[in-house]
Design a protein around this nucleic acid. Structure first.
Length: 324
DNA sequence: AACACCGTCAACCGCCCCGAT
DNA sequence: GATCGGGGCGGTTGACGGTGT
């Protein structure tokens, strides 16, 4: 096999790294920095591909790496973030200081995946696996989960295909008595203004004036918020479902479909709230509860609610939750 | 002891994105 | 706009060690 372009011209060594090679690479990078990876092999006196050097540094030699097995807390973080982002190991690893994408990926494939399956959960969707599709040697946990429900908690994913009119999207199937919302409009001293507040940390994540004045004001209002990092405008809230991805939330009167696009966080009120989005002039965002039901979101909604079409998957990069 | 099987993990491969030319 | 090279990423492979037969 020819190998990668960057090293096709030179004779390169493959396979495990020797301690001598590690020492050469470590010494070179600590002295000179890595600069251009493609030039590293020559400068460091290594018969390796630049990509191989980069990988060895990132996955093994980097001084800030955290060694040892994953803690339960780390495992939970991986599961939670994977539920939102899918197999985006590099993104997931960013939530775990000192861990690499390769490490997270291996841990997922060797441990977590099996654990979820043994609990009757689909490791891809995090939904409950229907009884008839489960492995015959199901555990007790499996059976318990099976008794609770035969249907996925959330069914929006299957509806989120291209070019489906928003009107055709049915509200997700959720348990009764949930009064949850992820966003709360807070009137400000300026009558025409209102803020949208992240109920997790009370940070203001968006203000309608920003959207009115600037169509694309990423992070300009609350750069510290991770809810999500990129939030700018909802002024195009009528965009069709084909250009959004997101998840639904049930309210007593309507549900909102949230979505992310490359630059936008879109809020879509659909049932009984098809007129204006102006929070100051309508009550459509006056949800039933002022408190944020974190457990609900974690255990139920997020189990299957996140949905993103393949062609929009990159827009989910910035979609991250911070429960701290 | 020998072998098969399995899990783990380091490393590679191929693809994609992006900036430079 | 097309091409190229570098960097980054996810999927996959294969070596290796542990365990069971």
């Amino acid at each position: 096999m020819a190998g990668h372009r960057c090293c096709s011209k030179q004779k390169v060594k493959k396979g495990l790294w020797s301690p001598e090679e590690d020492e050469k690479l470590l010494k070179h990078i600590t002295t000179h920095g890595h600069g251009s990876w493609s030039s590293i092999p020559k400068l460091a006196g290594l018969q390796r591909c630049g990509k191989s050097c980069r990988l060895r540094w990132i996955n093994y030699l980097r001084p800030d790496l955290r060694r040892g097995s994953f803690t339960e807390e780390e495992e939970q973080i991986i599961i939670d973030v994977h539920r939102i982002l899918g197999n985006r190991w590099a993104q997931i690893a960013k939530h775990l200081p000192g861990r690499t994408d390769n490490e997270v990926k291996n841990f997922w494939n060797s441990c977590i995946k099996k654990k979820l399956l043994s609990q009757g959960l689909d490791p891809t969707t995090h939904n409950l696996i229907p009884c008839h599709l489960r492995a015959p040697n199901s555990s007790n946990n499996n059976k318990m989960a099976c008794n609770q429900s035969n249907i996925p908690v959330f069914t929006l994913n299957s509806q989120m295909t291209s070019n489906v009119p928003l009107e055709n999207i049915k509200p997700p199937l959720l348990p009764n008595n949930y009064h949850s919302t992820l966003i709360q409009p807070i009137p400000t001293s300026t009558t025409s203004d209102y803020n949208y507040q992240n109920p997790i940390n009370n940070n203001i994540v968006w203000n309608n004036n920003i959207a009115n004045n600037n169509d694309c004001c990423q992070n300009s209002y609350d750069p510290t918020s991770t809810f999500p990092d990129v939030i700018s405008s909802i002024d195009d809230h009528r965009r069709p479902i084909s250009s959004t991805s997101g998840f639904g939330l049930l309210d007593d009167n309507y549900y909102s479909l949230w979505g992310t696009t490359n630059n936008y966080m879109v809020v879509e009120p659909t049932c009984g709230a098809k007129d204006s989005l102006d929070g100051i002039n309508s009550n459509k965002y006056k949800m039933g509860s002022s408190s944020f039901d974190l457990e609900f979101v974690e255990s139920t909604l997020m189990s299957g609610a996140i949905c993103a079409r393949d062609d929009l998957i990159s827009s989910m990069d910035d979609f991250a939750w911070n429960f701290n």
